[in-house]
Every structure is written in C-alpha cells, then in structure tokens.
Nucleic acid binder design. Structure first.
Lengths: 196, 196
DNA sequence: AGAGACTCTTGATTTATATCAACAAATCCC
DNA sequence: GGGATTTGTTGATATAAATCAAGAGTCTCT
C-alpha cells in the first residue's frame, strides 16, 4: 500500500526505514469515487494528498460558474492547495476525483512534526516543491503564456501529458488549456484531417 | 551588504551566525547596469541570484522574436532558472536588469555543499520553493488563466505588484500579462477616464 | 543641451476564439 | 439492457484583442 509513497520519499537521498514507517503510520488511506469532491472551496484544508492510484484534478470557479482546471494528479504525485494548507486560510480551489482513486492523506500537524524530526525529509520537501514550481513554470511558458494558438497549446499538452491525456475528459483538458470545449473539439477534428 | 540575504535565510528558523558567514562568503557580488543581460538563453546557468537591490526580469522569446516576461525580481527575492540550474541544461530564459542592480550570486557546487552541511538550510530552501510555487499559481489563477479580460488582468497585476509597477516599463508589463503593448496603452487610457 | 534611442499612444483593420444553440454519441450504473 | 446523465460535435454569429502603421513623448547619456 505504501510502497509508492516510500519510493517518493526516498527518491532524493535515503530516509531511515523506521522514519518511513513513522511517516506512513500517520497517513490516512482515503478511497474516493469518480466525480467525488475531496476538497471544496471555502474550506481550510488541513491535509496534503499523495495520489497512490487513480487521477484527480484541481480547479477554481469564476463568477460565471466556469471551471478552470489547474493541475491533474496521477499515481505518485503530491497534490493539494499548499497556500491555504500552510497559512490555514479558506481555499479557493476544489479537488475532485476524475477516476476512482486511492489517496494517502497527511495532516498538517503530523507533517510538521515529521519535518522537524526526520533527517532528510526537508530535502525531499524542497525538491518536490522545486519540481512543482518547475512544472508549473513550464506549463505557463508552453501553454498559458500565449502567442501560442489554441491548437499549439493542445499539442504541447499532449507532448507533456500524453500519458494521462486519454484518461481525462476533453472538457477538463479545455479548461486546463484556457479554451472553450467547442474549440478543442474543432481542433481535434482538424488534427485528424491533417494527419491522414 | 549581506544583511538582507541573512534576513532571508533566517526567516523560517534560526541559522547559526557562523553558517550564515559561510554562506555569504561564497556569494559573489555582481553589479549590473540597467538593460544588461545577466543570463542568456542557450547557456547553462551555474548560479542562483539573490536580488540585493534593484529590479530584474526573466523572459523568453518566441519564434516571432516576441518577448514573454515571466517574473520580476526586486530587493530581497531569489531569482534564477531553477530547472536548468538543477539539471545543468541549456536554459530557454533570459534574465535582464530593468534598473541598475546589485545581485548576490551563488554557484551550484557551493549551494549544494551548504545544503549538505548547514542545519536548517534545507528548510529555508523548501519554504522559499513553496513560496515561489504559491506565487506562480496565484499569478496563473488571477492573470493568465483567462475569462479575465485584459483590463481585469492589469488590475490584478496592480493589486499584486503595485509596489513595483511604476518602476517597470509598460511594454514589459504587457508582455507579463500576455497582451499587446497597444492594448495596455488603451486600457490605461480607459481606466483614467472611468476613474475621474 | 541635444541627438538618438527607447516607450507610449492612437487609429484602422483583421482574426482567432468565445458564445449561443441544438443535437449526437458515449458512458454509467441500477 | 436501457434510461439517464455526461461528454462531444457542429454551425452561425459576435467580439475582444492582435496586428499594422505612423507619429508623439520621454528618457539618457555623452
């Protein structure tokens, strides 16, 4: 059950097995069904999520009730609204399962405690945070900071997330790319034509 | 000279004074004139930057030679292309001074060494990285992930960066917002009209 | 102080994509 | 297996912002 998490924690330098045990001991296993909400805006999340299996997404809603997807999390990734988690503020983001998923959930106090006492854990945290930043910047560069047409953005998305693209409904992909569902539909049609 | 940096490093838990000394000892002070390039795309940056004074920006260029500004760095912030720094890859980003600036520059090997030997430093690194991620996500939410009109994006920018907005030429602000300089010019004219 | 380099403004025109609307296809799950 | 829900498609129209072009301000640096 905790093998993927243990691997994640050990990826950037050894962590003592007994410390890994202490870590996993405070993680709660949460099973969520597809479409089910894991975090809703307005709440103060006391937890971070490690996706053990399945697929989840993070989104906000604007005044017109349009959804804007910011991130997808598949097996082996950390997920959560770090901002409201760290500062104990009400969040503006929703987290929702796209597929039935198994999540490992760790509470603020437990994580804090572990950071303070497990040698090497801060390093994993730093590198994971840096990776998240790098990914987000790449995404901003290639997808949201335009002079890229809607079609180019979609192609960049496929290049980056080709592995999970087929598991994600097109509406969510469109909302991730910042384009209308209809536009994405037309683009895909176009790409089919041009590739045959 | 190193007071602002020492403060930054000590912001999330005490670091021994002699460790702070070791840190600052390996930092090079670099003075850059306005408009001067600090990092150019194609190079492999061996350094991260701490802005001691002044103002710098980070941008990429697309195939049409249009610039896209991704971040501004003012006094007291860390700056650099972490991705190519970490993975020793050629960078796609340029860093340029907007004002005459004093930068503190630390090399990869030195930082690595310090991370390995200074208690508490990994924590500062983690929190700084998390902060960078939080800022970038906020920016993506409020500015680049649309359903925000160009004018709304500009107003969000002013809300967030009002302190440095007046020090940045409008062309760069436009390129940060992902809109044309002309559009920003029209928006500002509009806002003047509507506020009197 | 003045030439040259930036930076900003304004107008006219074009264009990519959003929006609205309605239907078709796929999928879920009882 | 079949009704219900969710997701995807297609067409017509509207619109915000890009682009092109040219001129006016404003800095800046010797």
């Amino acid at each position: 059950m905790f093998d993927i998490l243990r691997q994640n924690l050990s990826a950037h330098g050894p962590i003592a097995p007994e410390d890994l045990d202490r870590f996993t001991a405070v993680c709660k296993v949460v099973n969520v069904k597809r479409k089910k909400q894991v975090l809703s805006e307005g709440n103060i999340p006391n937890f971070l999520i490690f996706v053990h299996s399945g697929l989840i997404r993070m989104y906000t809603t604007d005044k017109n009730m349009n959804e804007h997807t910011f991130d997808f999390g598949s097996e082996g990734t950390w997920f959560g609204d770090i901002k409201s988690f760290r500062f104990k503020q009400p969040t503006d983001t929703n987290i929702e399962a796209i597929e039935d998923s198994q999540l490992l959930v760790i509470a603020h106090e437990d994580l804090k405690q572990l950071y303070a006492t497990v040698p090497g854990l801060e390093r994993v945290g730093r590198i994971n945070a840096e990776d998240k930043y790098i990914q987000l910047l790449d995404r901003l560069k290639k997808i949201n900071h335009s002079n890229y047409s809607a079609e180019e953005r979609y192609q960049e998305f496929l290049k980056f997330h080709g592995d999970i693209a087929f598991r994600i409904p097109n509406t969510y992909i469109a909302s991730y790319l910042g384009i209308a569902t209809e536009t994405l539909s037309r683009i895909r049609k176009n790409m089919l034509h041009n590739n045959q």
